[in-house]
Design a protein around this nucleic acid. Structure first.
Length: 294
DNA sequence: CTGGGGAAGGGGCCC
DNA sequence: TGGGCCCCTTCCCCA
């Protein structure tokens, strides 16, 4: 079985050009993942580098929804869930998205139980990769020269603006604002981070130290691998309290719960129509319902 | 075309 | 400082 999956995965990777048909079928997911890895465009890096993060999200905003219980553990009679959600400021107006994105939070859970994910044999985050790379969050040795290491430099690399300022006063006496906010750059991509830890974590997205023992797909973090392994095992620890559906991913359960809501979380600012997902709201907006925002 | 599910990526926070 | 977890978001596919 494992060999078969590997062969399929390799085949898909080799045939990356015509992925339209390959992505369908049994190995579609695997192929899609590999193809994504191959391109590695990282289109989802939307959270990079926030200079003015407001630190902690306001989790208490949503606690009223379920009293802090995990959604998967909500009683089926939690009928005020959607309403409560909407009576708070959590109804999203797409016109406000740019300013809200960094301030939203919907921590609907505390320490979760159902996700024990035993299957220890399959959870070894990277047979080899994690041991060499993951533990240190550093790229493998051949790579290490390709990434920034503070030990190799007397100070963190600075942002463009900071570097310009530094160049301007090369004598060194006027490193002011830049020095108070050092930036750590990734040498694999143009991203920059405020802390070395964040950079190291990011570097893992390049080194992908966690390898699935079943299909060989690599991930940046152990829990990503765990989630992926569920696609092989079929484990779905997050169940919907309103229906019989279960999900392997909590976020997907959360999105699903929106489908049970009479009034959904994401609201069009023009027509007041609500949507279960922001992507649907965005589609709705760009489709022309809201000319002002389209 | 729309809505929903599946899978995945990434930063932030807590321990 | 690092690992684990949380949450958000996105992309793709399908009904």
């Amino acid at each position: 079985m494992m060999m078969m999956m590997m062969v399929m995965a390799v085949g898909c990777a080799l045939l990356g050009g015509s992925n339209a048909t390959l992505e369908r079928g049994i190995s579609g997911t695997i192929c899609r993942g590999l193809l994504k890895l191959e391109n590695f465009n990282m289109p989802r890096s939307f959270l990079v580098k926030k200079y003015f993060t407001s630190k902690r999200p306001n989790y208490s905003e949503l606690e009223c929804q379920n009293g802090g219980l995990p959604l998967a553990e909500l009683p089926a009679v939690a009928n005020d869930f959607p309403v409560t959600c909407l009576t708070t400021s959590l109804v999203w107006d797409i016109s406000l998205l740019p300013s809200l994105q960094n301030h939203t939070s919907s921590s609907l859970s505390t320490n979760q139980g159902p996700l024990d994910l035993s299957s220890p044999s399959s959870l070894s985050c990277s047979s080899s990769g994690e041991e060499d790379e993951g533990r240190t969050s550093d790229p493998p040795s051949p790579d290490s020269s390709d990434t920034y290491h503070p030990q190799q430099s007397s100070r963190p690399r600075r942002s463009n603006k900071s570097r310009a300022a530094q160049e301007q006063s090369e004598s060194g006496s006027a490193i002011t604002a830049a020095a108070t906010r050092p930036a750590f750059f990734c040498k694999h991509c143009p991203k920059e981070y405020n802390s070395l830890g964040a950079l190291k974590m990011h570097i893992r997205s390049h080194t992908l130290p966690c390898v699935c023992p079943t299909c060989g797909k690599a991930f940046s973090r152990p829990w990503l691998l765990r989630g992926h392994i569920r696609t092989h095992t079929g484990e779905r620890p997050f169940s919907c309290p309103h229906c019989n559906r279960a999900f392997a991913d909590r976020s997907n359960l959360r999105a699903h719960l929106q489908t049970h809501a009479d009034v959904k979380k994401y609201q069009c600012g023009t027509c007041s129509r609500t949507f279960s997902r922001m992507s649907l709201l965005q589609k709705h907006s760009t489709a022309g319902c809201c000319p002002s925002t389209a």
